[in-house]
Design a protein around this nucleic acid. Structure first.
Lengths: 230, 230
DNA sequence: CCTACTCAACTAGCATATCAGTTTACTAGT
DNA sequence: ACTAGTAAACTGATATGCTAGTTGAGTAGG
C-alpha cells in the first residue's frame, strides 16, 4: 500500500469542484452587487469568461436559483433577480425565528467563557466602528450571530441563517456604514441579557436588532430603485 | 398574433422538466423507504430505469443531496443516507423555531373563519384516526400545520418546514399508526389556545407536540437499526 | 408611418463522450 | 493458503453536440 499520509483524514475530504468555484465567485459578485440585479446571464458567456465548460456553470446557476438569486426560465434568458422588498422581509422573519430559538437555548447553555468571547467580539466591533472599517464590521457582525448559534449547541442553524441573510446582505451592501453603531449597541444589549440569563429580554433585543433593516429598506429602495423589483 | 388562450397565465407557467419528474419520484420513494437507507445509487442505472439520460438524473441527485437524502462522493458510489438521529433532532429544532414564530403571528391574525377551518380539519382528523386511515391522517396533519402558516401570513415558511419535516417523515413512516390520537389531541390544544388568543400556551403545546418524535425515535431505532446510521 | 409576419440568433434542457479517480476482482509470487 | 500488485470495471465531474422553444430585429404589406 502506498502511504498517502500519516493522518489519513477521517472525514471525506471535500474536493472543491469547478462548479463550486464558479458558484462561489458568482455568489460573491451577486451579493456585492458587482453583478447588478437585472443583469442577463448566459451559460455560454460565463463559461467562456471562467474558461470552463457549460456544465459546471449550469450547476452553479441551479444552486443560485435555489437561493433566489437567479431566475432561470427555460428557453429564455437567465437574469439576476432584483432585490425584492418582500423577499427581504420574509428572510427577516425566518432569520428572527431561528435566531431567537438559538438565543433562548444559548441562555441556558452559555458559560462564563462564552460570554467573555462575545464581549471580546464586541470590543473588536467597537474598534471597527470607530475606525469606520465597514467590511470588517460586517464580518464581525456575522461572527457575533454565528457565535450565538454555536453557544446554543445548534451550530448547524447558522447555515440556514446564512442562506436567509444573503437576501438582506444585498441591502446591507447598499446601506453604506449607516447603522453600525446602532447595531453594535444592540449586540451589547443582547450580550447583557445573555449574561443576565434573561432569554425574554435577549429575544426582544434581537427582534429590535433585526427589525432595523425594515426601517432602512424603504429609503435604500428610494435611493436605488434600479436594483429593486416593482 | 395567435390567440393562445383567453386567460394568458400571468405568472410564468412552471414546465415540469424531466429532472423534476426524476426528483419527485426518487424523493417519494426515499421518504416512503421503498428505497432503503444505505442503498447504492448509480446515475447510469437510474437513468436506464427511467429511460432518460444521465443529465436529469444528475440534477435530481444533486437536489436530493442538498436535502440530505443522498450522499454524493465524487468517484465513489452515491448512497441513500441512513436516518440520522442527530439530523432528525436538528430538523425538529428548526421546525419548532419556525412553527412557533408562525403560531405566534397566527394568534394575532386569525379570524373566526380561520378557527372554523382548523376545527373542520380536526374533525376530519378525528374521522381518519377512528377509521385508522394512516395515510389520510398524515396528509391532514400536514394540512393543519400548513394552515397555521397560511393564517399567520407567512405561507412561504411552509416550504422550509416541509424540507425539515422530510427527515422526520422517514421516521414517521416507520412508526406505523402510533401516536395519531396523541397528535390529534395536541392539535386540539393548539387550536384552543389559538382561539383564546394565547400565543404562549399555543407555543408550549406545539413544542410538546413536536417533541413527541423524540420519545418514539429511540425505540423506532431499536426496532429498525438497519435504517439508522451508527 | 404603422402593423403583421418571417427568420436568424439566441436560450436552457437533454443526450452523449471523455476524463480522472476509486473500488474490486484477479493473478503472480511467496 | 495468503499477500502484493495490477488491471478492469465501476464512480461522478466535465466537455460538447443537439433539440425545442423564445426573442427580437428586419421586412413585406397596408
Amino acid at each position: 500500500m502506498v502511504e498517502t499520509s500519516v493522518l489519513k483524514a477521517l472525514e471525506p475530504i471535500k474536493i472543491p469542484s469547478v462548479a463550486d468555484a464558479v458558484f462561489e465567485e458568482l455568489h460573491q459578485q451577486i451579493l456585492s452587487l458587482e453583478l447588478a440585479p437585472g443583469t442577463r446571464m448566459s451559460e455560454v458567456e460565463v463559461a467562456k469568461a471562467f474558461g470552463v465548460s457549460r456544465q459546471p456553470v449550469r450547476d452553479a446557476f441551479y444552486r443560485l436559483s435555489q437561493l433566489g438569486f437567479l431566475l432561470i426560465r427555460p428557453q429564455r434568458a437567465t437574469v439576476i433577480t432584483k432585490i425584492s422588498e418582500a423577499a427581504v422581509l420574509k428572510a427577516r422573519f425566518v432569520r428572527t425565528a431561528l435566531e431567537i430559538a438559538c438565543l433562548r437555548a444559548a441562555v441556558e447553555m452559555a458559560t462564563q467563557d462564552d460570554i467573555k468571547d462575545l464581549e471580546e467580539l464586541l470590543k473588536e466591533q467597537q474598534a471597527a466602528v470607530s475606525e469606520n472599517e465597514r467590511q470588517k464590521f460586517h464580518r464581525l457582525d456575522d461572527d457575533f450571530h454565528r457565535r450565538i448559534c454555536e453557544i446554543s449547541g445548534h451550530e448547524y442553524v447558522w447555515a440556514l441563517i446564512r442562506e436567509q441573510k444573503a437576501h438582506m446582505d444585498r441591502v446591507r451592501f447598499l446601506s453604506l456604514a449607516s447603522g453600525a453603531q446602532a447595531a453594535l449597541d444592540d449586540h451589547v444589549s443582547i450580550t447583557e441579557a445573555l449574561r443576565a440569563g434573561d432569554g425574554e429580554r435577549a429575544g426582544a433585543c434581537l427582534t429590535v436588532h433585526l427589525s432595523r433593516i425594515g426601517t432602512i429598506l424603504s429609503w435604500i429602495r428610494a435611493d436605488n430603485p434600479e436594483h429593486f423589483e416593482d
